[in-house]
């Protein structure tokens, strides 16, 4: 009953109808809680990024939304259908779950025909999605001969079968080269232009930042943030990059700024300092440095990236989640 009430509350959130809403969504495997009391509220028509560190529970959450994994607790509504009855909404959902999986010895087209037949879709629906994903020319080739990028595109084509209202894409950029990533970005934007709600999980926060207008962040199975990307950016404090004229003054300037109550970190190049100074302008910082006899060579305000917002919201550092990988990539 409490769950139902919470589900109703989420569905009544302002800002239009929700494509996905859940309340108390929980999944335990034995003693291990993988997804813990997650309440999603994803607006219809949005491109929603779903991010979180490795093992955060993204894929398990997606599997619950798709009826592949049974929730231990919680309820939800997807496109108006109850999460407890996937058959009521899955005909309107397309999905690419983790890596694309098809029959290796069938052609791309035959693989899609098998899925179309299963979903009672006309076989004429196959070629248009192959064309849209850029695979029509190779549709007659066996799946096992496809490159990683082509397999990914076939996965997208399969998800597009039947004209879904909600697309759930789990790591769609996996295996794509830079050109493929740009193509995928365009494809996802075109889905949004068609009015399709897209839920895309990715470990590339920079990529999510470019294509999504809504974001859901989870960590250790718990929801840490959801909301529009614009709101998240606006809520982040401005940060200044400041570099003294003489490198020898850098440590003194850092110390003075810290004494003044500002958070200071060193830049990667080490000649610059990053200063979080809420309610302060660049001119104030310039005056502060001059008053202490330090001439500033560089002073600029920069908006914090989504990636830094993620680290701030989840209380992690890049080292916690990146495990030695390049900045901007979390799993």
């Amino acid at each position: 009953m409490v769950m139902e009430q919470e589900a109703a509350r989420v569905s009544e959130l302002p800002g239009g109808p929700l494509a996905v809403s859940t309340a108390g969504l929980t999944k335990r495997f034995g003693d291990r809680t993988v997804v813990d009391d997650v309440a999603l509220a994803i607006p219809a028509g949005s491109v929603c990024g779903f991010v979180g560190p490795n093992g955060a529970g993204k894929t398990t959450t997606i599997r619950m939304l798709l009826g592949l994994v049974r929730p231990t607790a919680g309820s939800g509504t997807i496109l108006g259908g109850s999460l407890a009855e996937p058959a009521t909404y899955l005909p309107k959902v397309g999905a690419l779950i983790e890596s694309p999986a098809f029959y290796p010895q069938l052609s791309g087209r035959e693989n899609l025909k098998a899925l179309a037949r299963l979903g009672r879709l006309p076989l004429t629906a196959v070629d248009p999605v192959l064309e849209r994903s850029g695979l029509l020319a190779r549709a007659g080739d066996r799946y096992r001969s496809y490159s990683l990028g082509m397999k990914q595109r076939l996965g997208i084509a399969a998800a597009m079968l039947g004209g879904p209202e909600l697309l759930i894409l789990d790591e769609p950029n996996n295996g794509l080269d830079p050109a493929g990533i740009v193509e995928m970005r365009g494809l996802i934007k075109s889905f949004a232009d068609d009015g399709i709600t897209v839920l895309v999980s990715s470990h590339l926060i920079a990529e999510i930042e470019q294509i999504c207008d809504f974001i859901v962040m989870i960590r250790a199975g718990r929801l840490v943030h959801q909301g529009s990307v614009a709101e998240l950016r606006a809520s982040q404090q401005a940060e200044f990059v400041i570099a003294p004229e003489h490198d020898a003054d850098r440590d003194q300037l850092a110390g003075l700024l810290r004494q003044a109550g500002y958070a200071v970190t060193r830049g990667q190049a080490e000649e610059a300092l990053f200063v979080e100074a809420p309610g302060v302008g660049a001119a104030d910082l310039n005056r502060f440095a001059a008053r202490n006899g330090i001439t500033v060579r560089q002073l600029a305000e920069r908006t914090r990236s989504l990636e830094r917002a993620f680290f701030a919201l989840t209380g992690t550092t890049s080292a916690d989640v990146l495990d030695g990988q390049e900045m901007g990539a979390i799993r």
Binding site: I97, A101, L118
Partner: peptide, 18 residues
């Protein structure tokens, strides 16, 4: 082993029917 079952179940969630 191929992972194709998840594709099939998204298209036909009524498992007994599948």
């Amino acid at each position: 082993s191929l992972g194709t079952l998840r594709q099939l179940l998204v298209r036909q969630p009524r498992r007994a029917v599948l």
